[in-house]
């Protein structure tokens, strides 16, 4: 059997386990109307699935000759921002309720979850600077352009639909997951075009 296929299979398994775990526990926490701390606690185990997911991704990248030192650093930074995001989101939500925050404290708590996202933007910029392999860098740039195109299209269409009160308001932080979906689609198209 193709060794590349064998090494890629765990990526899908770990990825599926992570997303099912995160959405599943999130759904259950809402269903049972759990308070902030128990909600955060039940989401820790699926969050930890990110570690084997990233490791499996790196094994697959190495198997198809696409794992560079810059990619490894980006993966480590990706893990760091993911955990920091969950932690700071929990601190912001739980803190604002527990402390009945308002004024400068509320501003501080509100901006906390954004900090790891800013770190993600920095990590992506660092990757493009640090990547010495021009072909791998080009593929990421292509995927990032696809992601940006998707984000612009979705935001524009949704914005006008919202202006005419056809759809509900969506917070602007939704730009990040939309961009991430675009990046994943762009990466998938890259792989497909290589076959």
């Amino acid at each position: 059997m193709d060794s590349t296929l064998v090494s890629r299979r765990p990526v899908w398994l770990w990825g599926a386990a992570f997303f099912i775990g995160m959405f599943g526990t999130g759904f259950l926490a809402r269903w049972f109307d759990l308070p902030s701390i128990p909600s955060a606690l039940v989401m820790i185990p699926p969050m930890l699935l990110l570690i084997p997911f990233v490791r499996a991704t790196e094994r697959a990248q190495a198997a198809c000759g696409a794992l560079s030192p810059a990619t490894q650093r980006y993966n480590r930074r990706g893990l760091a921002w993911s955990f920091a995001y969950v932690l700071l989101l929990f601190v912001a939500v739980a803190g604002s309720r527990a402390l009945d925050a308002h004024g400068p404290l509320l501003w501080l708590l509100a901006v906390l979850p954004a900090l790891p996202i800013l770190y993600l933007v920095w990590a992506m910029a660092r990757y493009l600077i640090e990547e010495q392999d021009e072909y791998l860098r080009m593929k990421v740039v292509n995927a990032a352009l696809s992601a940006t195109g998707l984000l612009l299209a979705v935001a524009t269409v949704w914005g006008f639909l919202e202006t005419f009160e056809l759809v509900p308001h969506v917070p602007s932080w939704a730009a990040v997951p939309v961009w991430a979906i675009g990046l994943a689609l762009g990466t998938f198209v890259n792989r497909w075009s290589e076959k």
Partner: peptide, 27 residues
């Protein structure tokens, strides 16, 4: 091998493969 060439050029094996198959023109 492609890996040998990749190591000599200090690029990824995927880069060598992409250049050899004409999918990518190097800088």
């Amino acid at each position: 091998s492609q890996q040998d060439l990749a190591e000599r050029l200090e690029v990824s094996r995927q880069s060598v493969n992409a250049i050899e198959t004409g999918r990518y023109d190097p800088s």
